[in-house]
């Protein structure tokens, strides 16, 4: 086989592999989109790919199930918790990045281990404490819970970004007479905007998808999109169409957003360890 032939074969093999990968990872999503557009009677017939698409499922979840209430709660909770976490977390990350002290790495590990807490374990005391405080079924308790994993995440990620900013820039600022806070505000934050964006995306996604806390701590007023899956279980079977429609609506914004900021996402996934 000549070199050119080898190359061609290689190319075809890679292309095939890519197609398989895409198929495997995309299939459940496509299936969901398809189900959401299928009329009820066709859902139990998987082979039927030609059908008259209907938006009935979407109408039903918006008008009958009031799914937009869930979306409103999800958005508010995710947004508020993300903003708060970014502020508190970034400041701490700056401390970790710019100062050196004896227990620094131990403390950093402590932060990391908080990100690792199993939600299912910690939700029991949260439930009881929220009960005593009278905060059950409120958005604020969810905001607080989501900060539990968003703040450590922000610290870990932003630390990497801050460490990349050359010290000289800060020193130049200090010579110009800026105070520590001013340096942070005027110089560091604008420079680390890409990092903040990446962090924000992950905080938003994590809060948007969170299920355990939302399931246990809310009942009517503050319920969020992931808990809506319970709505679609009924005596006569799961309302797959409505559930799929909710899934499409819930994931569409995140997916579009995620693809748009792909580059930051990869960086975010590696905690800034790799400059994407």
């Amino acid at each position: 086989m000549s070199r050119a032939q080898k190359r061609a074969v290689r190319k075809v093999v890679v292309l095939l592999l890519f197609l398989i990968i895409c198929f495997f990872f995309l299939a459940p999503y496509l299936w969901m989109v398809l189900i959401s557009l299928k009329p009820k009677v066709d859902i139990y017939d998987p082979g039927k790919l030609l059908f008259v698409p209907t938006l009935e499922n979407y109408r039903s979840i918006i008008e009958d199930a009031h799914i937009l209430e869930y979306f409103k709660n999800s958005m508010l909770v995710s947004a508020v918790s993300t903003v708060l976490s970014l502020v508190i977390g970034s400041i701490a990350a700056y401390g970790f990045a710019r100062f050196n002290w004896k227990d620094r790495e131990n403390m950093a590990f402590m932060v990391l281990s908080q990100r690792m807490l199993p939600a299912m374990a910690i939700v029991i005391p949260y439930f009881l404490m929220a009960m005593f405080a009278g905060w059950l079924d409120t958005r604020k308790i969810l905001v607080i819970c989501y900060m539990l994993f968003n703040v450590p995440f922000t610290i870990l990620m932003m630390r990497g970004f801050f460490e990349d900013i050359p010290l000289e820039i800060e020193e130049a600022g200090k010579i110009d007479g800026c105070s520590g806070w001013q340096v942070l505000k005027e110089l560091i934050i604008p420079l680390s905007l890409p990092g903040l964006t990446a962090t924000a995306i992950f905080c938003l996604i994590n809060s948007w998808n969170e299920f355990v806390f939302a399931n246990f701590l809310t009942s009517v007023k503050a319920k969020t999109v992931p808990t809506s899956v319970m709505l679609f279980l009924s005596v006569s079977g799961t309302k797959w169409g409505e559930m799929a429609a909710t899934g499409v609506l819930a994931s569409l914004p995140v997916i579009v957003f995620g693809i748009a900021v792909q580059k930051y996402m990869i960086r975010g996934l590696t905690f800034g360890a790799v400059k994407g």
């Binding site: 439930f127 009960m131 005593f132 009278g134 905060w135 059950l136 079924d137 009942s219 009517v220 007023k221």
Partner: peptide
Amino acid sequence: LDFQGAHS
């Protein structure tokens, strides 16, 4: 759960 606190 609701009985434990929220009374919604």
